[in-house]
């Protein structure tokens, strides 16, 4: 019988996490480069009685978002594979497809989270002006002079980027390689790939599942109550 209550608990907690993931997706409906997150559950292999029945997995939908024009020279969108490389707060590189940049105080090109964009040769991209031209292969031109090249990276041989959130990634264990034929679009952004309809359906489904879980708990409680009163009478 305790298994029943454990299952109900797992159902309730899973639904809550689902709604949370949906909340984050919806909050980032308009965040460029954001990839929607989905929660999956699978039956837990453990035989331990006290382990929850299901474990939850987070997966990202890495589909390309639609590109839209912004007319800001420091907005860059990636069409096709690859991610920009940034210097993370701990010094390790992080990757993202979100390409809305601005100039930091010292001329460094940073994203909205303040992480510095890295060039293909390594090192921060430093500009003296935002009147730049970025070619499709990532070459940055100040006037007629190429000053740097922005590299796009993807995991080597079939690996996958490890997600930190919906828009930031770490390199997989096998490392990354440069994308051979990058396709950058200047003055455009890649929109978030969150589909509002899907999110609402997921949310409704999670709510109904939670209701089911709650019923389970109530039924269990009722059964236990009845058992106690029946056996209590018998003993008298």
């Amino acid at each position: 019988m305790a298994d029943l209550i454990e299952s109900a608990r797992a159902i309730l907690s899973l639904s809550e996490r689902r709604v949370e993931a949906t909340a984050n997706n919806v909050a980032n409906l308009t965040t460029p480069g954001f990839k929607s997150e989905r929660l999956y559950s699978e039956t837990s292999p453990e035989t331990d009685l006290h382990a929850p029945e299901t474990s939850q997995l987070k997966r990202l939908d890495l589909a390309q978002g639609r590109l839209s024009k912004t007319n800001n020279p420091l907005d860059l969108a990636i069409s096709g594979p690859g991610m920009f490389q940034f210097r993370g707060v701990d010094g390790l590189p992080v990757y993202s497809r979100s390409g809305q940049f601005k100039l930091g105080d010292d001329g460094r090109v940073v994203n909205a989270q303040g992480l510095a964009l890295q060039t293909a040769d390594g090192g921060d991209l430093i500009l003296s002006t935002d009147a730049i031209k970025v070619l499709a292969d990532g070459t940055v031109m100040e006037g007629e002079r190429p000053v740097a090249r922005i590299g796009l990276y993807r995991p080597t041989s079939g690996g996958q980027f490890l997600s930190i959130g919906g828009s930031l990634f770490r390199a997989p264990g096998d490392g990354v390689e440069e994308v051979a034929a990058p396709d950058l679009r200047q003055a455009m952004i890649e929109n978030s790939n969150v589909v509002l309809g899907d999110e609402m359906v997921t949310m409704m489904e999670a709510l109904r599942t939670a209701e089911g879980g709650a019923r389970l708990v109530q039924n269990y409680d009722e059964l236990m109550g009845r058992a106690i009163s029946t056996f209590g009478q018998g003993a008298r």
């Binding site: 996490r17 308009t30 474990s55 939850q56 997995l57 959130g165």
Partner: peptide, 19 residues
């Protein structure tokens, strides 16, 4: 970060920031 087992670790996402 491979499989964020949400049972074990808190969710890292906390919304959106406008600028």
């Amino acid at each position: 970060f491979v499989r964020a087992d949400l049972g074990a670790s808190a969710s890292t996402s906390s919304g959106v920031r406008p600028e």
